[in-house]
C-alpha cells in the first residue's frame, strides 16, 4: 500500500514536471546555428543527400564507432551469459511442431529478397532514409525467418564472428586512411565526392555504411542465434 502510494506520488511529481515543459514549449521558427551549419555545408562538403547520414557517419563518426562497439559488447555479453546452458540436439527436439510446407517454401522465396532489401537499405544510406543500422537489422530479420522455419538449423558461430570482426577492422581502417589522405579520422573525402544524388557519391560513406551494416547484421544475428540455441527450460 505504501509502495503504491510512493509510486503515485513519484508519478505525480514527474507528471507535473512534464506538464510544465509541455505548456512552456514554443517551437522555433528557424533552425539553430548548428543545424544551419549542417544544412548549408553537407551538400558541398560531404556530398551526401541525407543530412542525418552525414552527421552520423562523418561529422559525428567517432560516436558511431562507439555505438558499434557498445553493440558488439552487448552481443558478446549475451553470448557469454547464454553460453553455459546445454545445447539442444536434434534428437531431443523431435516434439517441436514442424513449420509446414507453406512456410518453408515461402521463406525460401522471401529470404533472398529480404537480404537484397537489406543491402539496398545500407548501400543507399546516403541517398534515402536508412543506413547501416537499419540494413543490418533487416539482414538479421532474414536470419530470423530462417530460424523460424527450421528451429534446428545451425549457423556457424565462427562465420558470423569472422564477418563481424572483419567488418569492424575495415571500418576502423577506413577511418585511419582518412587521417593520412584527408582531413582527419573518418573523413569521407578519400574518394571523390561525386555528383549529389548518384550512388557512387559522398566519398567513402557508402563503403563505411556497408561495413557497418554487415557488422550490425552479424551482431544482431549472433544475439538471435545464441538465444535460439539455448535449452528450453
Amino acid at each position: 500500500m505504501i509502495k503504491r502510494f510512493t509510486v503515485l506520488l513519484l508519478l505525480a511529481g514527474v507528471g507535473t514536471l512534464f506538464a510544465g515543459l509541455l505548456l512552456g514549449y514554443s517551437p522555433d521558427g528557424e533552425l539553430n546555428a548548428t543545424a544551419r551549419y549542417y544544412a548549408d555545408h553537407t551538400a558541398p562538403d560531404i556530398g551526401a543527400a541525407n543530412i542525418v547520414t552525414a552527421i552520423i557517419v562523418t561529422y559525428r563518426g567517432l560516436d558511431t564507432l562507439g555505438e558499434v562497439t557498445v553493440l558488439f559488447l552487448t552481443a558478446a555479453i549475451v553470448g557469454l551469459v547464454l553460453a553455459r546452458g546445454r545445447r539442444r540436439t536434434r534428437t531431443e527436439q523431435r516434439e517441436l511442431p514442424p513449420s509446414g510446407e507453406l512456410l518453408t517454401t515461402g521463406s525460401r522465396l522471401l529470404v533472398p529478397l529480404i537480404l537484397l532489401l537489406g543491402v539496398y537499405v545500407f548501400v543507399n544510406g546516403h541517398l534515402t532514409p536508412g543506413g547501416g543500422f537499419q540494413g543490418g537489422a533487416i539482414l538479421a530479420s532474414a536470419i530470423l525467418l530462417m530460424l523460424l522455419t527450421d528451429p534446428l538449423r545451425r549457423f556457424s558461430h565462427r562465420l558470423i564472428s569472422a564477418l563481424e570482426s572483419t567488418s569492424g577492422l575495415v571500418f576502423v581502417g577506413i577511418g585511419l586512411l582518412g587521417v593520412f589522405f584527408a582531413g582527419g579520422f573518418l573523413d569521407n573525402r578519400i574518394l571523390p565526392i561525386g555528383n549529389l544524388g548518384s550512388l557512387f557519391s559522398a566519398g567513402v560513406i557508402p563503403v563505411i555504411y556497408s561495413f557497418i551494416g554487415l557488422k550490425v547484421g552479424a551482431e544482431f544475428s549472433s544475439m538471435l542465434v545464441s538465444l535460439s540455441e539455448t535449452e528450453d527450460s
Partner: peptide, 9 residues
Amino acid sequence: FTNPLSSQV
C-alpha cells in the same frame, strides 16, 4: 506474397 502467408501461418 507476405499477407496470405502470414494469415495461413
